[in-house]
Design a protein around this nucleic acid. Structure first.
Lengths: 132, 132
DNA sequence: TAACATACTGACGTTGACGTCAACGTTAGT
DNA sequence: ACTAACGTTGACGTCAACGTCAGTATGTTA
């Protein structure tokens, strides 16, 4: 009896097209139960979608997002497999930490750019006020 | 007399192909002076390349990176134009701040996933030690 | 029941960011 | 002078992530 969603509801909530949702399903990124023909999404499906879109905002590919999501269940109980998974998790974290550094640098640059603009504006005003 | 670089040097330093460098030039992202036929890159060109690759690690498109780089000079002195530029800078910053949030959330999720893995490993060891 | 809105499935088109390959010029060493 | 190594320009190929469109089914309202 938990809440479900139609394809239109989800597409509107997240501002994506229905085509995108079908495409994600076709690629195995999210699933849906079918009543006769039309799709019905569970709140679990909705969460997966949310995570995928979060990944997209980070510039991750759909596959990368999917991987990260699937890392969230230790699923297969083999010791070696879990070790492999841990390594993958650490690799991904390394990449994201690098991204964090890049982000901060870029933000600093933007701060810089804006300041230059403000100065340029100030100079224009000075010219207006004092002539040349 | 400042340092210059060949296409091979740059491609090796940044681990990209020469094709990529020519492609970036074709798209107007970086430039190069030509001696007879072969390209020569200045350290300014090298910096631009560096910034483009940083943008790529953030998931930005080449055009977005190019835009950000070009924001770094107030260039055109018209007041309205500078205001427009400031607005663009602020928009981009907003986007990057959102990305920063997404990044932190994803890092938290990964931390979580790793912990689950460690627990799963611990349980396997317990089974080995104590039988079932 | 006729029209209309909404959903579904192919299937081909598109865009960004290069990869790949052919054909050719240029310079360094032997 | 000849070959090898490196550089250059087209031009077509490729892959991800959808867009777009045609044709069809399924309710739903006037």
């Amino acid at each position: 009896m938990t809440k479900t969603y139609s394809i239109r509801e989800l597409s509107q909530e997240f501002d994506i097209t229905t085509r995108t949702l079908r495409f994600y399903e076709e690629k195995g990124l999210i699933s849906s139960s079918r009543s006769t023909q039309t799709r019905t999404y569970s709140s679990a499906d909705r969460i997966r979608l949310k995570l995928i879109l979060r990944g997209k905002r980070l510039g991750l590919t759909l596959e990368e997002s999917s991987d990260i999501i699937n890392m969230y269940n230790p699923a297969t109980g083999n010791k070696a497999q879990i070790q492999t998974l841990i390594n993958k998790i650490r690799d991904k974290r390394k990449q994201l930490l690098q991204q964090q550094k890049d982000l901060e640098l870029t933000l600093l640059d933007l701060r810089d750019s804006e300041e230059r603009c403000m100065i340029a504006l100030g100079e224009i005003d000075n010219k207006k006020t004092f002539g040349q």
